[in-house]
Every structure is written in structure tokens, then in C-alpha cells.
């Protein structure tokens, strides 16, 4: 039963190469490569419309790519699902409203060859008390937890979650992520899409940043966080000396566009003081660095430049 095959264990959970998908004239996914090792927890981070959901649909075999290949544990997505190797909690996944929570799980369990006990996934998802409630009268958060319980039934090697905590309250969120972390310790690979940096930061080993159909950054949580931390000081300064400004304490990067400069720094006070006292700079603005600005910066520069920023 619990046989262990080293070859499978060493295999990458997800191997996607050159994936592309268009809807109408829009390139939703524009040629991405994604490789995830067994046991990694990966956050798929990006604004709405970045192509996260389309990518996930291709990993699950719900959509076939226009170009590129995708394998899950060395198999086609459909074969991986048939083996119960991958399961998912999707935003759009429907439920039957006229049966109970427990019946939904009984039904789902009956479709797999091997499953965990229904009582166990009920408890793990925190919905034991509402097991006999009709799905139609469950709240959005409870339905989302039911979807999570369904995804746990097959004890998948890869769990894919699309905005998993949408509609959950704080307590629901906490128990949800506790369950996820406990699973990762057992070797489960987790890929979750989110547009909350905090969620990605707190729970992922690795963050894949996606914007406009492309992966614009891919690295450890620390690396990605550094991109987002700090502030940007904008100023108008004709004939600025970027080298002098870059030498200031805490400055990560200096960009100049015409007379306008943008200084990425962890110490905005020092930069502002320097600009006001030592230079003729005017129209100074200080803005907090956030995910949106990182997305903008990464998508407006070329892909190779963004990779350079991470290395």
C-alpha cells in the first residue's frame, strides 16, 4: 500500500514549458516555463487578469494549451487526476446544493480508487459540525472549506488552490493554512494563486510573480519581498548624479528618466534630506513600494532585466 518509489519521489511535481493560451485576441498566458519540485509550497502571485487561473486550468487539463507542454508527476494532467495525484480548489468549482456536506464527500470519495476517510477530511477542513447540513444553506466560507475537504480526499501529491481563502473569516483562514502546512511536512506540493502578498509571504517557500501572461519574477519569498519593501523617492533634478545618490545608505536602485529620478530605498528620510539640502531637487514625492508598483516596474522592463534584479 504505502510503497515508496524513489524515481517518483525525485520527479518534479510540475514541469511546464512554453505554455501559451489565447482567448480571442488576448494572450492570457504568453509562453511561460514553470518547474516545481516535489514538496515545495509555491505562491502564484499576480494582479487579477495576470493569467494565473488560465495557467492553473492548463495544469489541471481543464484547458488545453495553444502551445507548450505540461506534465504533472511525469504524466499528462488528465492521467495525474485519474490517479488521484493532483487535486484543486478552484474559484469556479460548483457544488450540488441539494445534498449534504457529508454526502458531497461520500460522493467525491467514491470516484477515487484510494482516499482518506471522510471523517478525517471533515475534521481537517473544520466542517465536522456542519456535516449533515445541506450545501445550499452553507455560507460561502463553509462551501470553500468543503471544496478544500474534497481536494484533501485523494491525499494528492500536488494540491492546487486558486484564491483559496476567498470568503473565509479569520479563523477559517488560520485553520486552513495550518492544515496546508501540516500537509507540506508530509511531502505534499502546494501551488496557490493569490493576490495578497502577505499570504504569499507567510505561507510560501517560493513566489512566482505573474503579470500580463508572463512570469516576471521567480524566487524565494525573501528575494521577492525585497523587491517590494522600502519606498520610492521621486524628484525633479536636472543633471542628477546617480552615483552619488546610489552611494547613500539604504539605496537599492536609482532610475533617471529625463529630469525625473526615482530612488528605491529602505531609508527615504536620508534620501529626501540629501536631495533637499545638497541638491537643487524639487517636487519631491515619497511613495510606499507596493506590489502594484513592483508589477508595474517588472512588466515595463524587459524579462531579462527583471531576472537580473533578482540575482
Amino acid at each position: 500500500m504505502d510503497t515508496f518509489t524513489p524515481s517518483r519521489e525525485d520527479a518534479v511535481a510540475v514541469a511546464a514549458t512554453g505554455l501559451a493560451k489565447s482567448f480571442g485576441g488576448v494572450r492570457a498566458v504568453d509562453g511561460i516555463d514553470l518547474h516545481i519540485r516535489q514538496g515545495e509550497i509555491v505562491a502564484f502571485l499576480g494582479p487579477n487578469g495576470a493569467g494565473k487561473t488560465s495557467t492553473i486550468d492548463m495544469l489541471l487539463g481543464l484547458t488545453s494549451p495553444d502551445a507548450g507542454t505540461v506534465q504533472v508527476f511525469g504524466e499528462s494532467p488528465r492521467a495525474a487526476i485519474s490517479h488521484g495525484l493532483v487535486s484543486a480548489v478552484l474559484q469556479t468549482g460548483g457544488l450540488l446544493k441539494d445534498i449534504t456536506v457529508r454526502e458531497t464527500l461520500d460522493l467525491t470519495a467514491s470516484l477515487f480508487a484510494d482516499t482518506r476517510p471522510v471523517a478525517e477530511v471533515l475534521q481537517r477542513a473544520g466542517i465536522t459540525e456542519i456535516a449533515d447540513r445541506r450545501v445550499g444553506v452553507c455560507s460561502g466560507g463553509q462551501q470553500q472549506r468543503l471544496r478544500f475537504a474534497m481536494a484533501l480526499l485523494s491525499d494528492p501529491g500536488l494540491l492546487i488552490l486558486d484564491e483559496p481563502t476567498t470568503g473565509m473569516d479569520v479563523e477559517g483562514r488560520r485553520s486552513f493554512w495550518n492544515a496546508i502546512r501540516a500537509d507540506a511536512a508530509r511531502g505534499r506540493t502546494v501551488l496557490f494563486a493569490t493576490h495578497y502578498l502577505e499570504e504569499a509571504d507567510e505561507y510560501a517557500d517560493r513566489i512566482v510573480l505573474m503579470a500580463r501572461g508572463r512570469i516576471v519574477a521567480d524566487g524565494t519569498t525573501t528575494k521577492i519581498k525585497n523587491l517590494v519593501s522600502g519606498r520610492i523617492v521621486h524628484a525633479t533634478l536636472p543633471g542628477a548624479d546617480p552615483v552619488a545618490i546610489a552611494a547613500l545608505p539604504g539605496v537599492d536602485d536609482v532610475e533617471a528618466k529625463g529630469d525625473r529620478i526615482a530612488v528605491h530605498t529602505r531609508d527615504s528620510d536620508a534620501v529626501a534630506r540629501f536631495l533637499l539640502t545638497q541638491t537643487a531637487a524639487h517636487d519631491i514625492e515619497i511613495a510606499a513600494q507596493n506590489l502594484e508598483s513592483v508589477f508595474l516596474a517588472l512588466t515595463s522592463t524587459s524579462a531579462s532585466a527583471s531576472e537580473g534584479a533578482l540575482s
Binding site: 500500500m1 510503497t3 518509489t5 485519474s82 495525484l85 467514491s110 470516484l111 480508487a113 501529491g157 500537509d183
Partner: peptide, 27 residues
């Protein structure tokens, strides 16, 4: 080394008859 007993196993079976079963029919 051998994995912990409750490690997620990747050796799986595909259900017979395309998933046909009496539990689903009953529900």
C-alpha cells in the same frame, strides 16, 4: 531512507469502470 509512514504516496491506482460506483448512484 524510508519515508515516514504517513508520507504522501505517489503510487496510485485508477478506479475501475471509469469511476462507476453504487455510492454515486445511491446519492
Amino acid at each position: 531512507t524510508a519515508p515516514p509512514a504517513d508520507r504522501v504516496t505517489l503510487d496510485r491506482r485508477v478506479p475501475p469502470f471509469g469511476g462507476f460506483n453504487l455510492t454515486y448512484l445511491r446519492i
